[in-house]
Amino acid sequence: MSPFLQVTDVTKRYDDVTVIDDVSLEVERGETVVLLGPSGAGKSTLLRCMNMLERIDRGRIVLDGEELGWKPRKGVMRELSGRAEARQRQDIGMVFQSFNLFSHLTVLQNVIEAPVGVLKRPKAEAIAEAHDLLRQVGLDHKADAYPAQLSGGQQQRVAIARALAMHPKLMLFDEPTSALDPELVSEVLDVIKGLATTGMTLVIVTHEIGFAREVCDRFVFMEDGRIVETGASDRLTVDGATSPRTRNFLSRVL
């Protein structure tokens, strides 16, 4: 059986700069994979390719047997329409570094907007589920607040609930704690750790090595748009890593 998420020979260029260079990666269902590496390594770009926020120039990404952005028709691969692309994105939750909660909507409205508007779920059902999700992230009492009234950590937890409300197959986290004050980081990491134990498939870009070691099944170390090394979480130490470049990086951040 082919893996749940399969990234094959993906290359991404901005003009002449190659930000992702022939990267292949497999993620199993229910697995938590952490992408590590110095800034500019292409981690975030790779993550954004996984839900088509960035177009890839070469290679293919297959999620649960379905190629992202392309479809075979009469033996030829054809690009998907915007609508079909949007349909594929419904299965992929994304959490951004800068939260990106819809600032004109309340917390509850943020969570139900897509389930009601895109998945056409009954509103009452979506509201009930939204309250459940907000309770899970400890913020049900903020359901009627606006994003501007919340701390960064609270906003990020709402963003996680909003992504989960779509019942995604895969959750992507793009440096979820990088924009937070240090004392707010743990409340968000705790929610992600909880999520990892539920069997959800997670791909996380982070700079929190301690958290990475605790939460992930496998880590992927990237540099200059290439994968340098992948390994089990217990090898995520200066002594455990195989590649000298990974060791060098870890020795600077640990």
């Binding site: 299965d91 994304m94 897509a114």
Partner: peptide, 20 residues
């Protein structure tokens, strides 16, 4: 980021414009 978040939730471009 507002547009990206909407698109990432599976909204079409029209819906993203109208609602967000």
């Amino acid at each position: 980021g507002q547009r990206e978040a909407a698109v990432a939730l599976g909204m079409t471009r029209t819906r993203t414009m109208m609602k967000i």
